[in-house]
Nucleic acid binder design. Structure first.
Lengths: 191, 191
DNA sequence: CTATTTTGAATGAACGTTCAATCCAAGGAG
DNA sequence: CTCCTTGGATTGAACGTTCATTCAAAATAG
């Protein structure tokens, strides 16, 4: 896979940034530490990113894209809506449990000044299939007619919040517990 | 109300700290900025608190106490258990919507190195009535037997996530919508 | 007067960012 | 094959700023 070597370096910087931010938070993550963790010099980060803020926002977009891909990849639109919602919910949990650093990062990002409507709307396109499915579910009165961001909160934010608590040891998310939480969320959403 | 003037200053420092931490996070909140926001000199903070860490921990304890008070204030133990549990759920959800800064602060604190079992056990006493009610609710099968942190996520993290989205304009939280979300969450929690 | 509260300049460490200097791969010339 | 040129990639020391914290001195209270 003769990848662009610059792309490789970008990824190294991304993954070092993700690791440190998950551990120490935004302001606890120094650019010099990112450089050390990525095995590059401090200056080179500014060759690939304008500054620290842009690095963090670009990382968020990249991770959001990856998550959306993962949710949509095996999504089956021929299934009944109940199954579709459960699937999305389940994938969400599994994804965040499998990538605890991303869960920690997402939580921090969502409660930071970086989080804006502009960025969130920019990311909407990656979740097209999913939101369309929910809209149809609402029209057919199968699920409650709640605004998209509310549904997102109930599925995605709950998953990342719980995954974060799992990552720091506040709760143990067994498969059985995840199933029960998904059941509970379905009760919340369905009509 | 001839309050201790030192207590007034403490409160000023607390509210400045809360505001800045909710906006910028722990590391993004400089002591000098806290001082400016509180309208005091930088040095005086160290007269009331040993250092930044102690300030943050004391703020957490104070806010936790305030929240517990607010939940218990109009709590009516003569009501049927279902009404009691619902009442607490509703108050909790509304409290965090009403105090988004506290919600953001709690979220940050809970997943930071500041958060320890020791502090949490110290705070238990303020939630006596509340946790007893939840326990009885679970025993009598009124609500689902889910771990505390999961219930907390459904009430508190959902509330603060929605409050944030409301703040950036991603969704408009009308009273009617809040009621509907609260109903939905009750469906998730109840048995 | 004494005792307590308050100030804000001073301190050294750590931060984000810059940039002159170097490295290195690729290619043409001899 | 060797030498020279070229331009982007990379380095790390250096810069100015900001940080948490301290403390002698000033203000205030009793």
């Amino acid at each position: 896979m003769g990848n662009d070597p610059g792309e490789e370096k970008r990824e190294k910087i991304f993954s070092a940034t993700l690791k440190l931010i998950a551990e120490k938070g935004f302001h606890g993550t120094a650019m010099s530490k990112v450089a050390r963790e990525a095995g590059v010099s401090a200056g080179i980060i500014y060759h690939y990113f304008e500054n620290k803020d842009e690095l963090i926002i670009e990382l968020y977009k990249e991770l959001k894209r990856q998550m959306a891909d993962s949710l949509v990849r095996n999504f089956d639109q021929t299934q009944p809506l109940t199954a579709q919602v459960r699937y999305i919910c389940g994938e969400c949990f599994r994804y965040h449990l499998k990538h605890p650093r991303q869960a920690l990062f997402f939580q921090q990002f969502a409660t930071s000044p970086y989080y804006t409507t502009r960025i969130e709307k920019e990311m909407r396109c990656h979740f097209g299939v999913i939101s369309e499915t929910f809209e149809r579910g609402m029209q057919e009165m199968i699920i409650k007619d709640l605004p998209g961001p509310v549904i997102e909160t109930l599925l995605i934010d709950v998953a990342s919040s719980l995954a974060k608590k799992h990552a720091v040891g506040l709760v143990e998310l067994t498969d059985a517990l995840v199933d029960r939480v998904m059941d509970a969320l379905w009760e919340a959403i369905r009509n």
